[in-house]
Design a protein around this nucleic acid. Structure first.
Lengths: 212, 212
DNA sequence: GAACTTTTGTTAAAATAATATCAATTCAAT
DNA sequence: ATTGAATTGATATTATTTTAACAAAAGTTC
């Protein structure tokens, strides 16, 4: 599993999509696949797929292709999905609740321990099987349970302060929906900034330039 | 505004982030900014910013920098945010309602006309100022109002069929939350596939590899 | 089991993207 | 006005990423 040299960010960002497609293939009952077939399915080149996989050591077989079962395990392991990581969610507003109710955290490698909100009306309620606790109790909870990552669905203004606080308390990653770009890479804490608006603006541009 | 040669996808995907930051600067009352300052703020290189902007014709001034007001207009125009585009939303389940209630479509260039759902209990209700209508009435509505894009927050299985139907009815773009990767580029219809799970899996990997 | 086909892993080449450099131009100060 | 500092836009360079090519290995068929 040890990598000779740093794997490029471009490759890393393709891994979840590979994993998704392999899971689908497994669900379809497929046992093995060649880089060519997978490339066709995903709209990539076979060459790119082979090179991507080989960043982590070849797990294919010449003349045969890739075994779906094995490939899924390998990709899952590279992504760290079975590491039993834990998460908490901060901010049980509309967006936070939508995630609690709909999003399958387990499928992305995380067990959601609980949510926190400052609003007393929400404290004690449960969404998607996850209890909302008072924000006051967050530091003690983090100190005790040491969750790996925090999901930030709090209002934007609070984001930088809370992020710093969480890092001080030992959080190892942030899934950030606040709209504020956070960069804690310098502190060794990765952040995934989610900006739905960026995606929609890109679509707006694409629609505008696809005009005939 | 005419481009000499195709602007690379990498540049396009940075535009929304530029736009966001310029909006913030304007809100802060800043009147002008140099590529160096902006680079520092955004964690990029000044060179990259100048080259990106120059893809669309230089709108800076030597010895002065970029005028915030002008830059915002130019970027907004490139993104097509003022084109008065319209959207409909399909599927007023948890995710759909979360978008209706929380997401600022106008800020990303779209006026949301209405939502559609097959569930009679939801039809007639309003979320975020947007009315839910019966799915049955969707084709007639699209034929009459010709919305530019459709937001897909329907269950995954239906996605491909509905997408094709929408394209036949003249839809020009899809903002796809179904989890199913849609590729209608061949039909000249751009799609933005949103996969929150990809983002969280990437974070899982980053947390795992940032281990000391 | 020999010939043929498939397909990988690896190396090389091509294409793309990011960064550095610098002349030309503008602003600001005296 | 003249000088000096700042900053762009363009070009050149470097780095990265993607694609192509192919020998080596495994499967398949007769």
């Amino acid at each position: 599993m040890e990598r000779k040299q740093e794997v490029s960010k471009a490759v890393i960002q393709r891994l979840p999509r590979y994993y998704r497609n392999i899971c689908e293939l497994k669900a379809e009952g497929v046992q093995r696949i060649s880089s060519r077939s997978l490339a066709e399915r995903m709209g990539l080149t076979a060459s790119q797929i082979r090179q991507d996989f080989n960043c982590f050591g070849g797990f294919g077989q010449q003349g045969y292709g890739y075994n779906i079962e094995k490939l899924m395990e390998e990709l899952g392991s590279i992504l760290g999905l079975s590491a039993g990581r834990t998460a908490i969610l901060l901010g049980a507003g509309n967006l936070g609740r939508a995630l609690l109710n709909n999003f399958d955290f387990e499928a992305s490698g995380f067990r959601l321990l609980c949510a926190f909100d400052a609003n007393p009306a929400l404290v004690g309620q449960e969404f998607g099987g996850c209890e909302v606790r008072s924000s006051d109790t967050m530091p003690a909870f983090v100190a005790e349970h040491k969750p790996d990552v925090a999901v930030l669905t709090i209002p934007r203004g609070n984001a930088p302060d809370i992020a710093r606080e969480l890092v001080d308390q030992g959080i190892r990653g942030l899934w950030n929906f606040t709209g504020e770009d956070l960069h804690l890479g310098g502190l060794g804490v990765p952040v995934e900034n989610v900006h739905l608006s960026d995606s929609l603006m890109t679509l707006c541009h694409l629609v505008s330039t696809t005009e005939e």
